[in-house]
Simulated scan of single mutants.
Amino acid sequence: MKRFPIVILICVILSFWSSCRKDFEFSPSTGNLEFSKDTVYLDTVFTNIGSSTYNLKVYNRSENDILIPTLRLGEGQNSMYRLNVDGLTGTGAIAGKEFENIELLAKDSMYIFIETTIDIETLASSETQFLYTDIIEFDSGSNRQTVELVTLVKDAVFIYPQRFLDNQTGDYIIETLVFDVDGDGTDDETTIQGRFLEPDELNFTDERPYVIYGYAAVDSGDELVIDAGARVHFHANSGLLITSGGSLKVNGEPSTDTEVLEGEVIFEGDRLEPGFAEVPGQ
């Protein structure tokens, strides 16, 4: 009589194991993945400044749990993009370039996070504006699917405060401005992170964009001249500061091209994605 409870227990265990086992049976991908977009346009980036992180959503609309054998950047380890696939950083020598055996459950989806850091010096061109592209490859052979990646890259003049190492704390201290704040003839210490422009920096031209981190200050007796067609970009919490006795001259001109605006002087943030076009305080 004692055998029956044991037999029943074994049957229950086998039934439970059988019903759950299919959750761990992954079929090879058949090239029927769907994507939230077929091309990912990353925001314009300036030399040596990485882009924002963008995401791509990948859908498995089928009834089967699938295994994506390979997921990689088209340029492989040499790509200037980096990926994070649902928290995974990849299998190659350099993180974020190549992935293997990615599991995706039936009727489920996953996120791929994409970013880039591009050094303009590595791009073989003499122009000052570049389009960098690559692809994300899902699987290979007849099951291969791709999503394109596109980034506009610009060379720029960077103006930023110096950083000094505090030997006691090991922390970096960012340079702050010292000038006569209250007009009493004595310079005052401030907490404004930035630096004064050097004499050879007091003319902004239209040759390259200017990107300002912190505050670019014009000292008493100096004048900053900004030529027609110049483009000045400010990082978050940054700006121009003209001290008492200093001056700013902006030589904007009417443009003949209403799209290019070649004569106007444009001040804007350094986040150039369309979604930030009207966002203050970037």
Rank of each mutant, 00 (worst) to 15 (best):
residue 4 F to A: 09
residue 48 N to P: 00
residue 116 T to N: 08
residue 218 V to L: 01
residue 157 V to N: 11
residue 112 I to M: 05
residue 196 F to E: 06
residue 132 Y to I: 00
residue 217 A to K: 01
residue 58 V to K: 04
residue 65 D to K: 09
residue 280 P to L: 04
residue 50 G to R: 04
residue 161 P to Y: 04
residue 48 N to W: 01
residue 152 L to E: 08
residue 263 G to Q: 07
residue 76 G to N: 04
residue 169 T to R: 05
residue 243 T to S: 04
residue 42 L to A: 03
residue 147 V to W: 03
residue 23 D to H: 09
residue 38 D to A: 10
residue 105 L to A: 14
residue 33 L to V: 09
residue 64 N to P: 08
residue 59 Y to A: 01
residue 76 G to W: 03
residue 233 H to W: 06
residue 162 Q to V: 15
residue 144 R to K: 13
residue 177 L to P: 02
residue 135 I to P: 08
residue 118 I to G: 00
residue 97 K to V: 01
residue 38 D to W: 10
residue 199 P to V: 07
residue 92 G to K: 10
residue 90 G to Q: 00
residue 239 G to N: 06
residue 157 V to D: 14
residue 111 Y to K: 06
residue 233 H to Q: 03
residue 46 F to N: 00
residue 103 E to L: 12
residue 148 E to Y: 13
residue 77 Q to F: 06
residue 159 I to T: 07
residue 140 S to M: 01
residue 100 E to M: 12
residue 214 G to L: 02
residue 198 E to H: 09
residue 170 G to M: 13
residue 60 N to Y: 01
residue 164 F to W: 07
residue 98 E to N: 15
residue 67 L to Q: 06
residue 137 E to N: 10
residue 189 E to S: 13
residue 76 G to I: 03
residue 270 D to K: 02
residue 266 I to C: 01
residue 91 T to N: 08
residue 121 E to D: 13
residue 112 I to D: 00
residue 108 D to N: 13
residue 150 V to Q: 15
residue 131 L to D: 12
residue 234 F to D: 00
residue 253 E to F: 13
residue 171 D to V: 08
residue 147 V to A: 07
residue 66 I to M: 06
residue 200 D to I: 01
residue 239 G to V: 05
residue 42 L to T: 02
residue 7 V to E: 10
residue 203 N to W: 14
residue 255 S to T: 00
residue 5 P to I: 07
residue 256 T to G: 03
residue 112 I to N: 00
residue 212 I to T: 09
residue 95 A to Y: 11
residue 119 D to N: 11
residue 251 N to Q: 07
residue 6 I to Q: 14
residue 103 E to Q: 12
residue 1 M to V: 14
residue 96 G to H: 03
residue 275 G to I: 11
residue 9 L to A: 15
residue 117 T to Q: 13
residue 126 S to C: 09
residue 80 M to Y: 04
residue 256 T to W: 01
residue 119 D to V: 05
residue 166 D to R: 08
residue 160 Y to G: 07
residue 141 G to F: 03
residue 174 I to D: 12
residue 76 G to S: 00
residue 187 D to G: 11
residue 238 S to Y: 00
residue 124 A to D: 14
residue 132 Y to G: 00
residue 138 F to P: 03
residue 74 G to I: 08
residue 39 T to Q: 07
residue 126 S to P: 08
residue 116 T to D: 07
residue 237 N to K: 11
residue 260 V to G: 01
residue 103 E to M: 13
residue 160 Y to D: 05
residue 142 S to W: 02
residue 28 P to L: 12
residue 40 V to Y: 10
residue 87 G to C: 02
residue 51 S to G: 04
residue 264 E to C: 04
residue 92 G to D: 06
residue 256 T to M: 02
residue 259 E to V: 14
residue 88 L to P: 02
residue 19 S to E: 14
residue 134 D to L: 03
residue 19 S to A: 15
residue 122 T to V: 14
residue 72 R to Y: 14
residue 249 K to M: 15
residue 61 R to W: 12
residue 279 V to N: 03
residue 276 F to L: 06
residue 131 L to G: 14
residue 258 T to S: 15
residue 14 L to F: 13
residue 233 H to P: 04
residue 280 P to N: 08
residue 130 F to Y: 15
residue 100 E to S: 11
residue 228 A to I: 09
residue 5 P to M: 09
residue 19 S to L: 14
residue 276 F to R: 01
residue 188 D to L: 04
residue 126 S to H: 09
residue 220 S to A: 03
residue 83 L to G: 08
residue 63 E to Y: 14
residue 123 L to V: 07
residue 151 T to A: 05
residue 100 E to L: 15
residue 245 G to A: 06
